[in-house]
């Protein structure tokens, strides 16, 4: 049985190989560019072509390094993170190549339909009788720009972050959303609810189809807990209670569980991955999803 540190060392060595390829490729590209500039200045454009013969192999080498690194990232997730997460929250299943489905993401009713949809790093399991599913989600909107030279199509990301789905035992009466910005994207007849906490109303916009249910769920403790979660998780946070599910979205422009090029995989990085995983535990416990308010009696 190889211990974690040995595995990290092994991956660091493989990572260095791919990084070396990228560096070599980069250096060749740089030399190629210099040759092109010098030859173009001193001779003519045809002479500068020699520089291209240097530049192209550089691009190929750098690309090979990039592809190697990308493969390594996937292997790291499967071989190291899966086991690591299992130990942190027993029963957790980690599927790096899968993600929440589009219907699941749009069931939040606070995320609008995207023209381009990506999801990965699916985590599923059960914690204190509360089922959870979470994944990284990226949503992009298509933009078309008409110019004199033609039409340019480009995509702009409006959500980059994580979406969490928790299923608890008790169906929620009505629909409730707590949003840092925006409004619910559904025609269920949501109405804005003013809670007794002025600070909470300033920070979040609360919408519900049943005002009493909003007060039932958002007790002073839970309001304080949502404040705490917002403080601990930078980015725009949104919560949506629908039926038996609670959806949470954090739009923080972050891609979680990714190793980075030219950064050593060490205990600090592993701790960061663990913290990102334990956000699930934090939600369940801080929002008291495991307590009687959400359990069938």
């Amino acid at each position: 049985m190889i211990n974690l540190q040995d595995k990290l060392n092994q991956f660091n060595q493989l990572k260095k190989k791919s990084e070396r390829l990228v560096l070599i490729g980069g250096a060749i590209i740089a030399i190629g560019v210099i040759i092109i500039l010098i030859l173009a200045q001193q001779y003519n454009e045809n002479a500068a072509l020699i520089g291209f013969f240097v530049l192209v192999p550089g691009v190929i080498v750098a690309m090979v390094g990039g592809v190697e690194f990308s493969k390594l990232k996937k292997r790291f997730k499967v071989e190291v993170l899966s086991t690591f997460f299992q130990e942190a929250i027993p029963g957790t299943n980690y599927s790096p190549n899968a993600g929440l489905s589009q219907p699941e993401v749009y069931s939040t009713e606070f995320l609008k339909r995207a023209d381009r949809f990506y999801s990965e790093d699916l985590l599923t399991g059960q914690l204190d009788d509360v089922e959870f599913r979470s994944s990284d989600v990226k949503l992009e909107e298509r933009h078309v720009q008409h110019t004199r030279n033609g039409t340019r199509v480009y995509y702009v990301a409006y959500f980059v972050g994580r979406v969490f789905k928790f299923t608890f035992n008790k169906p929620f009466d009505g629909y409730l959303q707590v949003l840092e910005s925006g409004s619910p994207l559904s025609n269920r007849g949501f109405k804005k609810v003013e809670l007794e906490s002025i600070d909470f109303n300033k920070k979040f916009r609360t919408f519900s189809t049943n005002e009493l249910s909003a007060f039932y769920v958002l007790t002073p403790d839970i309001m304080e807990a949502i404040f705490e979660l917002e403080r601990r998780n930078p980015g725009r946070i949104s919560l949506s209670f629908t039926g038996q599910e609670l959806y949470i979205g954090i739009n923080n422009n972050r891609d979680t569980f990714e190793i980075k090029m030219f950064t050593t995989i060490d205990q600090n990085m592993m701790e960061e991955f663990k913290r990102d995983l334990l956000v699930i535990k934090d939600f369940v416990h801080t929002l008291k999803l495991n307590t009687k308010i959400f359990k069938q009696i």
């Binding site: 003013e194 809670l195 007794e196 005002e211 009493l212 249910s213 007060f215 039932y216 007790t219 009687k292 308010i293 009696i297």
Partner: peptide, 27 residues
């Protein structure tokens, strides 16, 4: 025991109703 849980549940609902009422009164 079931009734005890149900009473606890009605207490939670009563708290919510009371808070909603008082929030409206404050406004």
């Amino acid at each position: 025991l079931e009734l005890q849980s149900a009473v606890a549940n009605t207490e939670e609902h009563l708290q919510a109703a009371r808070r909603l009422y008082n929030a409206n009164v404050t406004r």
